[in-house]
Nucleic acid binder design. Structure first.
Lengths: 176, 176
DNA sequence: GGCATTTTGTAATGGTTACTACAAATAGAT
DNA sequence: ATCTATTTGTAGTAACCATTACAAAATGCC
């Protein structure tokens, strides 16, 4: 499962063939389909696995006992760190998955992303209800951009600088 | 050429087959290959056409007679407007092209994007040399995010609000 | 009008895709 | 050890991809 995740993260859903997966896993196509049902089925399981192992722990970062702006800024920086962690598999598995050309896989990734955005929105809205919509959009857009730029070569220091710049908006618009 | 551009913009390079193009253009494959050489060749020409007709006029927006922060913020807002203009073909043709799975097409789009980022960088560096790197990265990342979110449903008002929020950073870090 | 050249349409080529039918091998149970 | 049930490997299917061979039609030229 970890190797499948790595494949999807490195190349993206569309560019990974089931032959790639079966080769990497050392199994044959019938075993693959007995185990996962389809390529999209494997992707679902990979997303679940990712959620349990590598997803940003939003609940730990977005804490009620710190200023909202600080918490969200910390989340952006953590995203930058994770997106740059493996240069061969840059960006966010889920955000990149929302842009693939397979309907099932894209909707699965979008659903996961929507859940995360809802979580962020609710966190912000608890203390800044009137700014939550705008700020959530801004943060989600920034994370999409960070993921995209991670894939096209921006290294950790550049992503972090961008994340900090974006974070500086939050302290302006979300006063403690 | 305009219809080919629309196809690529709506569906992305990978999801457009040459059969789609030949159908839309009302021509047959041999005519297509006589005219464009290859699918990537057509894409090159579409990028050139786009540069001449629909690209954001950076030279007009990034003027030497306005504060850098204002000009760059205006560019972000203009990007938001253009990315949302056609809901069926959201985002930026070039930025989306940099993420496709074909080597030739991706490099062509990347080259065009790199030129734009260099232009922006030089504009900023002329008056804020120490901040140019960071700010250019931030602006490029924001535009990538705006393009991505335009494709996944954010409408004009949401993109504009995000662009304005991002623009507010610039007035902080690039004092007039 | 007759000839050469270019354009066009049909149909195919080789490659890759996700996905399976089927037979051989293996494992488990008693 | 024998019989059954499951797993495995080989090979293949049907669809789609970008690209092209080839013949028919249309055009331009004199």
């Amino acid at each position: 499962m970890a190797t499948a995740q790595q494949l999807f993260h490195e190349r993206g859903y569309d560019a990974v063939s089931v032959a790639d997966v079966t080769d990497a896993l050392g199994i044959n196509p019938p075993s693959f389909y007995a185990a996962f049902g389809s390529k999209a089925g494997l992707y679902q399981r990979v997303l679940d696995y990712w959620t349990d192992t590598e997803a940003i722990p939003l609940a730990d970062i977005l804490r009620p006992d710190v200023p909202v702006a600080d918490a969200v800024a910390a989340m952006l920086e953590e995203a930058a760190r994770r997106y740059a962690f493996n240069p061969a598999a840059g960006g966010c598995l889920v955000l990149e998955g929302t842009r693939c050309n397979d309907d099932d896989a894209r909707e699965a990734a979008r659903a996961l992303n929507l859940g995360a955005e809802t979580f962020i929105h609710d966190y912000i809205a608890a203390r800044h209800p009137e700014a939550a919509d705008q700020v959530t959009d801004f943060v989600a857009t920034t994370m999409s951009g960070l993921s995209a730029k991670a894939r096209s070569g921006h290294d950790l220091s550049r992503l972090l600088a961008t994340a900090r710049l974006a974070g500086s908006v939050l302290t302006q618009v979300l006063p403690a």
